[in-house]
């Protein structure tokens, strides 16, 4: 019922898709499949990152090796006796170490107190330390994420407009001008289609590089998958190395998330939100609907 209402509300705008467009024109930008998979995917990523940090806490270090190897430890979060006698939290990356008490190493226990744990309770899922339940949420939303990603790609292929989001060689010369425009060093953005060249670069990397990499590095941690497909874990440098890659890819996608939110806020928040809820969007200058 809500779907029919939505379709009716957006029916007019859906009919005005044209190849030639002008600024200020309202176009139908995001299909219902894109909007649903976007928001379901957002929830999935949120839970995956938070439950992933919960899982990380059970072994709060990362080794660039197959079996665990303190000699190849790249990152470690922990607590140790500080010179004054009190316990202090620390983050160590390679040879670089900082005190992180109250945030990392020692922090929120998720139940109103403080305790020794790598990531604090306010950023893990669930808040209190519980590896079993962290895994439970992680695996469920891993499936949600994979299904959302596949549904998005299949729907785009069926609509025959998936290519609009893919970075092409002809976009490359426009990357710098677009970046300069974002930095307010250029008055006008370069002429572009549905997505600007920087969006295409970002989305292409996230959709076709980072997301598959996150899935593969996660699967490589599983002894059952490793038994079926030795080369996967092997190519990643082993099980512990796969865990390091999985974590690094999580940091990358979290970075993308903050950049994305910043740009949604700073490039016409209401227009952007309208396009990802109702589906309609008012075109800006030099913006089109094509490739």
């Amino acid at each position: 019922m809500w779907y029919d209402a939505l379709m009716q509300a957006t029916a007019g705008s859906r009919q005005i898709i044209r190849t030639s467009t002008e600024p200020g024109q309202v176009v139908y930008r995001h299909s219902i499949a894109t909007r649903i998979t976007h928001w379901a995917g957002f929830i999935a990523i949120l839970v995956l990152v938070m439950s992933g940090l919960q899982i990380f806490n059970a072994t709060p270090y990362l080794d660039a090796s197959d079996k665990s190897d303190p000699g190849r430890r790249v990152l470690e979060i922990g607590a140790e006796q500080a010179p004054g006698g009190a316990q202090a939290g620390f983050l160590r990356i390679g040879g670089w170490k900082i005190t992180t008490t109250h945030v990392l190493g020692i922090g929120d226990d998720g139940q109103g107190g403080e305790t020794e744990r790598a990531f604090p309770g306010w950023i893990t899922f669930p808040g209190y330390q519980d590896l079993a339940d962290g895994r439970r949420w992680h695996f469920f939303f891993a499936w949600v994420m994979v299904i959302c990603g596949a549904a998005y790609l299949i729907a785009g292929a069926l609509r025959k407009d998936l290519g609009l989001i893919v970075l092409r060689p002809s976009d490359l010369p426009k990357l710098l001008p677009m970046q300069l425009y974002y930095f307010r060093l250029r008055k006008e953005p370069p002429e572009h289609g549905k997505y600007n060249p920087l969006q295409k670069a970002g989305y292409t990397v996230v959709l076709f590089v980072l997301s598959p990499f996150l899935v593969l590095t996660g699967l490589a941690l599983s002894p059952g998958i490793d038994s079926m497909a030795h080369p996967l874990t092997f190519l990643l440098g082993g099980r512990q190395f796969a865990r390091l890659w999985h974590f690094a890819a999580m940091v990358a996608i979290t970075g993308f998330f903050f950049g994305h939110v910043f740009l949604v806020l700073s490039t016409g928040f209401f227009n952007n939100m309208r396009s990802m809820t109702a589906g309609t969007y008012r075109l800006g200058k030099h913006e089109g609907v094509g490739p």
């Binding site: 139940q111 309770g121 893990t124 669930p126 808040g127």
Partner: peptide
């Protein structure tokens, strides 16, 4: 602190 409360409650 509300974050942890919310995720605990959901769990």
């Amino acid at each position: 602190a509300g974050c942890a409360k919310a995720t605990n409650a959901l769990n």
